[in-house]
């Protein structure tokens, strides 16, 4: 497979997001958050995942790109905050995501803030070089 540059990955991810979310091209920047800035809803994450699979000819397992069923586990979320165990699991399962923004207050409702366009680009870059 030909080596694909980070810029090329970004361009393709941008196409996917414009298509899946109806996002305007100028809004899809590296630091844009999928939910807050681009308006993604829960089903859109599956749509994005399917479209990335097609675009890059890869297989993405459920829970590999975005976290799943986190909120229903009491050992992971307590009083609306992510536990140490949750942070550990998230870092291990989703190495393409920068969780440092969450470290100070660990509010679970701010989890969506770490899923940015850049996290998708990082994910694809890791996946293609694996």
């Amino acid at each position: 497979m030909a080596v694909i540059s980070r810029d090329e990955i970004f361009d393709k991810v941008k196409d996917v997001l414009e298509n899946a979310l109806g996002a305007d091209a100028e809004d899809v920047t590296m630091d844009a958050t999928l939910q807050g800035d681009l308006g993604a809803e829960s089903i859109d994450f599956l749509d994005i995942s399917f479209k990335l699979e097609q675009e890059f000819d890869i297989k993405i397992d459920q829970g590999e790109l975005f976290p799943e069923n986190l909120m229903s586990d009491d050992s992971l979320v307590q009083d609306g905050k992510l536990t140490d165990k949750a942070m550990e699991i998230l870092r291990e399962r989703l190495p393409h995501v920068d969780f440092s923004k969450l470290e100070t207050n660990r509010q679970v409702d701010q989890l969506s803030e770490v899923f940015t366009v850049e996290s998708l680009v990082d994910f694809i870059e890791r996946k293609l070089s694996a």
Binding site: S42, I43, L46, D47, M71, S72
Partner: peptide, 11 residues
């Protein structure tokens, strides 16, 4: 797009 209800919505 279709969702499999039992496998979504955080359990």
């Amino acid at each position: 797009m279709f969702s499999h209800l039992d496998n979504n919505l955080s359990g």
